[in-house]
Amino acid sequence: MSTTNETQPQDSALVRIEGVEKTFRRASEDVHVLARLDLVVPPGEFLALMGPSGSGKSTLLNLIGGLDRPTQGSVTVAGERIDTLSDRRLADWRARHIGFVFQLYNLMPVLTAERNVELPLLLTHLGKAERQKHVATALAMVGLSHRAKHYPRTLSGGEQQRVGIARGIVTDPTLLLCDEPTGDLDRKAGDEILNLLQALNREHGKTIIMVTHDPHASARASRTVYLNKGRLSNEPVS
């Protein structure tokens, strides 16, 4: 964003979704998941996305994270239309802009905590020493420096998720996307994760979009939107 003569529209949104539809082709019928959906996320927001199971929360998150493309409409992130990028360009784009945190942590079981956190950095041009520095910082931020050499199976669920978050933020992405990050954790571990996300948002200015169906979790967010029957609203449907 250093060039001043770029013809980018003065967009206050970090994520802008316009008229997005998503239809899955199943063997027999078409499943319409998202219908003409609009969403704007300003930078620095901690947005919670709620809705009943199967309402399309993950689908929407995948569209924002460039893991999938909409059937209709446009997805613009940090001023760039991503729904029209090729698979390859999209992969590069994800590496630069998106950090993912998954419900089931999804760590590589064959790698230690620090090697897991290092994975996204392998895609950058950083040398080994620099990668190690970034990894150490990220692990320190999630309070797991002492677990760096541990394998995921030797860590608790909460610790694994903190490694997952460290992996999500190690490249300092534009956007952190979390799909039910506390869905598999007990209340105490879940709270720790939420504290961490909140701190990342408040102290480090990270923009976070978090899918959850736990009201306790969404209460930590700066805003909550509800997805139901393919549409978004600011109020939960009764």
Partner: peptide, 16 residues
């Protein structure tokens, strides 16, 4: 398959 999906989500290209 899932792990490969994670690698791709992180930004590994198809070629990688």
């Amino acid at each position: 398959i899932g792990e490969l999906g994670v690698l791709k989500a992180i930004g590994f290209t198809p070629a990688q």
